[in-house]
Amino acid sequence: MSSSTYEHFEGCVLCGLIDTAISSGIFKIWTKLIKKSEWFQLLDNGGFFTLFIPTDAAFSRVPPEYLQALESNPEELNDFIDHFIVPEFASTKVHNSHYSSIAGDDLLIESNLSGPSVNRVSIKIENIIATNGMIHAVDSIDIFNTKKN
């Protein structure tokens, strides 16, 4: 794992994506949002996905009104979450690689001396393995800054 604010991951071992995220203790806001979305059942029970999940520290920099608007509008919430889900294995070990989010964003994983990033957003904890995918903890909600044409 990269050197970061978070020394290491202390969460559920051999759990699905949702339980792994919940057990980490650093994704409380994302967990609250995902439980209200259409993604909750799918991410809890099936598929194989890579999630770029903003930490609670990342969400703390978002205006509360924005989060309230997401929570009250299921369609907007689902569209928001689509930006953070890749329907395949997206490891940070494959540097300078492009992946597409469900929303169609081009997500570029890079690595330099300060650690891995996705679209220049720092990945605080990388390659957290779950039984149905992988999680990368990111320090901003702004990972979807480029779109594929």
Rank of each mutant, 00 (worst) to 15 (best):
V138G: 00
N119P: 02
I125D: 07
A137H: 01
Q41F: 10
T55L: 03
W30A: 09
L51W: 07
F59C: 00
S37H: 02
P74N: 03
I135M: 05
K35E: 14
L17E: 02
G11L: 05
D56Q: 01
P64W: 12
L67W: 00
S117Q: 09
G16N: 01
S2R: 11
N132M: 05
H95R: 11
K36D: 08
N127M: 06
Y6P: 01
S100E: 13
N45M: 07
V13Y: 13
L107N: 06
D82W: 00
D142G: 09
L113W: 08
F40D: 07
W39A: 10
T131F: 03
K147W: 12
V138C: 00
K147I: 15
G16C: 02
P116C: 05
R120T: 11
T20I: 01
I109G: 08
I123W: 01
Y6I: 08
C15M: 06
D56I: 05
D139V: 04
M134D: 08
M1T: 14
I26W: 10
H136P: 06
S60H: 01
P64K: 12
E10Y: 08
S122R: 14
Y6H: 10
G104A: 04
F48D: 08
A103Q: 14
P116A: 10
P63I: 12
L17H: 02
Q41K: 12
A21S: 02
D142N: 14
L14V: 14
P74L: 04
P64H: 13
E75V: 07
G16I: 05
V86K: 04
T5G: 12
P87E: 15
S140K: 06
F9N: 05
Y99K: 11
K32Y: 09
D106V: 13
I141K: 09
A103D: 13
E71K: 05
I143F: 05
P64A: 10
G133D: 07
Q68R: 15
F27A: 05
M134K: 09
S60Q: 05
E88T: 14
H83T: 11
A69R: 15
E10R: 07
I125C: 08
I102T: 13
E75K: 15
F27T: 09
N45W: 08
N149C: 09
H136N: 02
Y66T: 14
I102L: 12
S114A: 15
I18V: 07
G46H: 14
H95W: 13
D106T: 15
N145A: 13
N45A: 11
